[in-house]
Simulated assay, not measured.
Amino acid sequence: MVVTLDLAKARPADLVAGASPLAELMAGLHVLAEPEHHPESRAWLGRVRERMPDGLATDLAYHAPLWARFRCRLFYPFAGPLDRDLDGELDALSRLDEDTFVRYAAIAIRGTTFPVDGLLADPSGFLRACERRSYSRAELARALVTDPAAVRAGLVETLARCATSYFDAEWRMVGPRLRDVSARLRDATRGATVAATLASMSPTATTTDVPPRVHYDKLQSATGAVAAHGCLLVPTLRGWPHLIVKLDPDEPVVVHFLAGDWEQHRQVSQSLVRERIAALAEPARLDLCRHLLGEPITTSELAERTALGEPQVSRHIRRLREVGLVTSRREGRMVYHRLHARLLLDLGVDLLATVMR
């Protein structure tokens, strides 16, 4: 499964890169709402919670369906120029027409895309769907259909309190870094193809020339066209390993990508994760891993220890080597095999990152 961007007729000018404090604030709110998914942010979470005034945590929990799982489109720019300040973005959110606000708020609260036209006239199906998800979603959904203006005012006021309590100070540190990433990306775009620029958003992205497309490795399937309304590239330093791609009709594509060090947050493709799990599902291979862990060992020694024939051991070793879990080196006439213990240790993290990405 992949998210695909169709690049037919797309030009470098269709790509607009820039920082968004509102998107970065939302990324942090997602971490606050789903802390168990982000152990790397534990220290940051502690600092934020210490600075959070009374009542703000309750208000954030009330609005959390807007960012906990399905990131609401309202928190991303709808057009350039980017690199605005948070006050400007909150003002734009306050002035957004009500139909657009209700549309994207409802989609986020329900947690999936659905036909929103006529929602306020007949909200019964929407409310039932939200009630099946959770009480908190149902509560916010009822408020939205009853008084969308009040929901918007409460949301903007809550976001402004986040800015005052902790985010303004955080943005003074991370904002220059994100603006620098955006500036370097704009420079790179002028000398690169659209496909190369979009593929640089993720270490697991792939491209095709015919038809011209970029594919993002995610556990969902969706397709959007860049040339239709352009594409906004928004970097973030918060929320590894998420790569968010917004493909809303009549709006620019948004790619919210990790601007941090990929070497510190390694990602592998979902196909490789599946292959490694499948390789280890064979009991004989799992037993071989026990012997391969302690020291380099030959095929003949493995055969003697496991009561398998040497051809069988060779086949199992070859499969483990194909998925990177075993390394082999020759010394004279002997070939020694050893388990790549670090990759085995990382497999759980890789699986979680694949599910979350």
Score class of each variant (00 low, 15 high):
residue 98 E to R: 03
residue 175 G to H: 05
residue 186 R to C: 09
residue 175 G to I: 07
residue 144 L to K: 03
residue 126 F to K: 08
residue 95 R to I: 01
residue 158 T to A: 14
residue 119 L to W: 09
residue 108 A to Y: 09
residue 140 L to H: 07
residue 184 R to G: 01
residue 133 R to L: 07
residue 126 F to R: 07
residue 137 R to W: 01
residue 85 D to M: 00
residue 107 I to N: 02
residue 138 A to S: 14
residue 100 T to D: 11
residue 130 C to Y: 03
residue 121 A to E: 15
residue 82 L to K: 07
residue 121 A to G: 11
residue 112 T to H: 13
residue 168 D to W: 02
residue 157 E to H: 13
residue 107 I to S: 02
residue 148 P to Y: 02
residue 119 L to N: 05
residue 108 A to M: 08
residue 109 I to G: 02
residue 118 G to I: 10
residue 97 D to R: 10
residue 179 R to S: 05
residue 124 S to P: 00
residue 134 S to G: 12
residue 108 A to T: 04
residue 158 T to M: 12
residue 95 R to H: 10
residue 96 L to A: 02
residue 188 A to V: 00
residue 83 D to Q: 08
residue 83 D to P: 09
residue 147 D to N: 13
residue 167 F to T: 09
residue 109 I to N: 02
residue 186 R to T: 11
residue 181 V to R: 15
residue 101 F to P: 10
residue 180 D to F: 12
residue 152 R to S: 04
residue 115 P to A: 13
residue 118 G to T: 11
residue 184 R to P: 00
residue 117 D to M: 04
residue 83 D to E: 14
residue 126 F to Y: 15
residue 114 F to H: 11
residue 189 T to G: 03
residue 146 T to Y: 06
residue 177 R to V: 09
residue 113 T to I: 09
residue 112 T to Y: 11
residue 119 L to K: 07
residue 160 A to Q: 14
residue 156 V to C: 11
residue 104 Y to Q: 12
residue 98 E to Y: 01
residue 185 L to I: 02
residue 177 R to M: 12
residue 170 E to P: 00
residue 131 E to M: 07
residue 166 Y to L: 06
residue 131 E to I: 00
residue 82 L to T: 01
residue 189 T to C: 13
residue 111 G to N: 09
residue 90 L to G: 05
residue 173 M to S: 09
residue 92 A to T: 10
residue 157 E to G: 09
residue 161 R to V: 04
residue 142 R to M: 08
residue 181 V to N: 10
residue 122 D to A: 15
residue 84 R to K: 13
residue 138 A to H: 13
residue 147 D to M: 01
residue 101 F to N: 03
residue 82 L to Y: 09
residue 114 F to W: 14
residue 167 F to C: 03
residue 93 L to W: 04
residue 168 D to A: 14
residue 145 V to F: 06
residue 175 G to S: 06
residue 105 A to G: 11
residue 82 L to V: 01
residue 90 L to W: 05
residue 159 L to E: 06
residue 100 T to A: 12
residue 183 A to Y: 06
residue 142 R to C: 05
residue 85 D to K: 01
residue 108 A to N: 07
residue 102 V to G: 05
residue 110 R to V: 03
residue 128 R to L: 14
residue 126 F to Q: 07
residue 118 G to W: 10
residue 137 R to G: 03
residue 117 D to K: 15
residue 182 S to D: 05
residue 155 L to F: 06
residue 156 V to T: 10
residue 186 R to Q: 14
residue 142 R to Y: 00
residue 106 A to R: 10
residue 157 E to P: 04
residue 123 P to T: 04
residue 178 L to R: 12
residue 150 A to N: 04
residue 173 M to A: 12
residue 114 F to Y: 15
residue 151 V to M: 03
residue 184 R to A: 11
residue 89 E to W: 06
residue 158 T to W: 10
residue 176 P to Y: 10
residue 154 G to F: 08
residue 122 D to Y: 08
residue 178 L to E: 11
residue 104 Y to N: 11
residue 130 C to V: 07
residue 94 S to L: 10
residue 159 L to T: 01
residue 121 A to T: 13
residue 91 D to L: 12
residue 180 D to A: 15
residue 110 R to I: 02
residue 180 D to H: 14
residue 147 D to P: 02
residue 179 R to D: 00
